[in-house]
Design a protein around this nucleic acid. Structure first.
Length: 274
DNA sequence: CTCCAGGCTTACG
DNA sequence: CGTAAGCATGGA
């Protein structure tokens, strides 16, 4: 057990806003990151951590190095977003493992957070390694690439199961260099990710934002589309229906600037509460 | 019963 | 080119 200074951090908002799928809060927050169990409690501006992971890994995972004041002043372009910043101060993006993030968001396609969480839990129990009682590692690309579709059916993935398995196979076989995306630009990374079956612009944007820290990424799902149309429709004149979500993302990038990924998460959380 | 969920792919004009 | 159906599953 050890302590970490975490000023300007709200662990409840960070872990419950829908960006990660494998954390639960009982007496304390408990999750599995990079094959290790983490138990975390926040006391004021301190985190109390029980884990085999070291302090540096935790700081990295919760992006405690991000200068939130600077980010807030960049994205705080109007009354709505500044009110959300006041309301949800301390919500941070998380730096997820790229493979877990990619596989998880392939599961998110036309799905609910409740079902996504359930499917991911079943996948970990079925194809991951047991760490301690009740906690499993996220299955490796190798493990999932060798899974039978009939076994994956028990994970309730529906039509997404073949997409998860083929992505796993591309990475396990070395056909796709997922971890090399960290050295690419946002645009180049997106070009690569959408080559994967079941990955379009939105899921690619989630992986670029949540795993590779491309803060200029602005994933547009059904919630963000609605909230952007409601509050920022003046930025969206003459948008064609077929590429509406791309146009919303582009306009948000211009409007909120290079940290628009943070703006997206605050807008998303606001819509979640309704 | 219908509609929708942190969408994507394919088929049709 | 642009649009729309279809896709498994579960909850409202």
């Amino acid at each position: 057990m050890y302590r970490i200074q975490a000023p300007d951090f709200n662990i409840d908002l960070t872990l419950s806003c829908g960006q990660v799928f494998r954390w639960d809060k009982k007496e304390q927050w408990t999750g599995v990151v990079n094959g290790a169990v983490i138990r975390a409690t926040q006391e004021g501006s301190e985190l109390i951590i029980e884990s085999t992971l070291d302090k540096k890994s935790i700081q990295d995972y919760f992006r405690l190095e991000d200068d939130l004041e600077k980010i807030y002043s960049e994205i705080g372009r109007d009354e709505l977003i500044t009110s959300l910043i006041r309301k949800y101060r301390g919500l941070r993006l998380i730096r997820q493992d790229p493979w877990e993030c990619l596989a998880s968001y392939i599961c998110s396609s036309n799905n609910t957070i409740r079902n996504i969480k359930n499917s991911i839990r079943l996948m970990c129990e079925c194809f991951g390694n047991r760490i301690e009682n009740g906690y499993y590692s996220f299955p490796t690309p190798e493990a999932l690439s060798q899974a039978e579709l009939c076994d994956m059916a028990s994970c309730r993935l529906g039509f997404r199961a073949p997409n998860v398995r083929s992505a796993a196979a591309m990475i396990a076989d070395g056909e796709f260099d997922l971890y090399g995306i960290k050295d690419l630009s946002y645009e180049e990374g997106r070009e690569e990710l959408v080559k994967i079956r079941g990955v379009g612009n939105k899921i690619a944007d989630c992986v670029l934002l949540f795993a590779f820290g491309k803060l200029e990424s602005f994933p547009v799902d059904t919630h963000i589309e609605q909230i952007m149309e409601r509050y920022y429709s003046e930025n969206l004149k003459d948008v064609k229906k077929s590429k509406k979500r791309d146009a919303i993302a582009d306009s948000a990038r211009r409007y909120f600037g290079k940290y628009c990924g943070y703006a997206q998460e605050y807008l998303y959380l606001e819509d979640q509460e309704k």
